[in-house]
């Protein structure tokens, strides 16, 4: 078998594209972890909810699905805020693993609520651009994937400015760096928790819209595996580090696709975990993580 440059670059592009979904998930998880020091294993359910809300809006309005980001992101932010207030705030600072356990409950609740409303059949939708491809050197690139990569980049840039320039963003960063200090500075950390959780969920919602637009199929159970990989990514990239999440997301996207290319598709899920375990054996705090606590 001849492995030419054009094939490799094509595989790399699929990796880049699937990395986008992971980056959005991992960035959200990371923001939440930074501020609240908790891990939400039900984060993938926000992704799933995002795809269904996009699908629902698409069916009733018929708008261009990229426009529907305006719908899915705010809905998910509200959902995130509600989940934080009802489920995570009461257990903050209790048992070490409680947040993981409560996420298990949330996974069941979200998946089956959606299944009750929309049934659990596989669904998919079609982007108006799905038939357009752009030739880039030797590779044919579907326009949708290029848009998805651009949209992801725009969202990340917006997030960057939000965190760096706005007062709320600054408060989020302050809380993330030093919770007690932020409290002393008069920042309402509980409000920041809620908000951060909402933004994290909103990013997952955006990922959901992009997932649906790209023509990938979805059902109520589709969220768990991407979310768990998102979590592996933030361990790789360093807990709380957003650039780390971007690098990690791209890395996992690439590694997965190159593994599928060499070892075969059945190793696609397992390889992220192998990578994760190797890194944790070498460095128990993650690639760029430092010891806090």
């Amino acid at each position: 078998m001849d492995v030419s440059i054009s094939i490799l670059s094509q595989v790399a592009f699929w990796g880049l594209y699937s990395g986008c979904i992971y980056i959005l998930l991992a960035t959200g998880l990371n923001l939440i972890f930074g501020v609240m020091k908790i891990v939400n294993f039900a984060h993938g359910e926000f992704l799933m909810l995002g795809t269904y809300i996009t699908f629902f809006l698409f069916v009733i309005t018929g708008f261009n699905p990229y426009v529907l980001l305006i719908g899915s992101v705010p809905v998910l932010i509200v959902a995130g805020v509600i989940v934080e207030r009802l489920c995570f705030r009461p257990i903050l600072g209790t048992g070490k693993l409680n947040e993981i356990f409560i996420s298990l409950g949330l996974i069941y609740i979200f998946q089956n609520m959606v299944a009750l409303i929309w049934t659990d059949e596989w669904r998919s939708m079609k982007s108006p651009f799905s038939d357009i491809t752009i030739a880039l050197g030797p590779v044919q690139l579907p326009l949708d994937y290029l848009i998805i990569i651009v949209v992801t980049a725009v969202i990340l840039v917006l997030l960057h400015f939000f965190l760096k320039r706005t007062p709320i963003g600054k408060a989020i960063r302050a809380t993330s760096q030093n919770r007690k200090g932020a409290m002393l500075m008069g920042i309402n950390v509980e409000k920041i928790n809620m908000l951060t959780f909402g933004i994290g969920a909103g990013l997952a919602g955006a990922a959901g819209t992009l997932w649906a637009v790209s023509g990938q199929v979805f059902n109520p159970y589709m969220g768990s595996i991407p979310a768990i990989k998102g979590f592996a990514i933030i361990i790789l990239g360093g807990l709380g580090s957003i650039p780390g999440a971007i690098v990690g997301g791209l890395a996992i996207g690439m590694v997965e696709n190159f593994t599928a290319f060499t070892l075969g598709g059945s190793w696609k899920d397992a390889v992220s975990f192998i990578l994760l375990i190797i890194i944790l054996v070498v460095k128990p705090t993650g690639l760029f993580g430092e010891d806090e606590e």
Partner: peptide
């Protein structure tokens, strides 16, 4: 043994996936 809780959760989860993949391939 050297891992913090959430890392541990991830690693154990990952092992189940890896072992299943091994068994079927």
């Amino acid at each position: 043994v050297r891992l913090r809780e959430w890392f541990l959760a991830m690693v154990t989860f990952g092992f189940a996936v890896i072992i299943q993949t091994l068994v079927v391939s």
